[in-house]
Write a protein that binds this DNA or RNA. Structure first.
Length: 153
DNA sequence: GCCAACGTTGGC
DNA sequence: GCCAACGTTGGC
């Protein structure tokens, strides 16, 4: 079992949207970055826990927790010319982009803010605190996960 | 809305 | 395969 952090813009899809989704489950579609794609395709597994991180918004930080309920499979939006995520170079035989399904687990009483996260000793290796780190899917080690959960309570 | 940092593209 | 130009991300 591994831990992850998924970034999202709450204006597009945030922790509340996940909580309100049918069966509180949603496809994590639209990831268009190769390194993040590789995580989704090869490493994210059913049962893994995921921090939902809100970016580009008023309250930046970790908003809650989700759990992976389906591991990597081709993201259908890449085949849909109507979609913002359409990729003309992708084909059904040779899909380029992958996604997983996640289910809502919990929402923090308050967002664990980026400022607070940065202030935690021992968190220096977490991608999200590094300047210029733009990866939207990133691994979190168990120690960091625990630290962040403690800080959220 | 600014801008630094980063990823991707495409000409050579 | 280099690298400049361009587009995007994301905190501020």
């Amino acid at each position: 079992m591994q831990y992850w952090l998924f970034k999202s813009e709450p204006d597009v899809f945030g922790i509340n949207d996940l909580a309100k989704a049918p069966e509180q489950t949603a496809s994590w579609e639209g990831v268009r970055n190769y390194q993040a794609r590789n995580f989704l395709r090869d490493e994210v597994q059913v049962g893994d826990k995921v921090f939902i991180y809100h970016s580009s918004c008023k309250q930046i930080g970790i908003a809650g927790i989700a759990e992976v309920v389906k591991s990597g499979y081709p993201d259908p939006t890449q085949f849909n010319p109507e979609s913002d995520y359409y990729d003309p170079k992708a084909s059904a035989d040779n899909p380029r982009w992958f996604m997983v399904d996640v289910k809502f687990v919990s929402k923090f009483n308050r967002v664990l803010s980026l400022d607070k996260i940065k202030s935690l000793p021992g968190i220096e290796q977490l991608g999200v605190v590094k300047k210029g780190h733009r990866l939207s899917i990133m691994p979190v080690v168990a120690q960091e996960w625990q630290l962040l959960c403690d800080a959220a309570n």
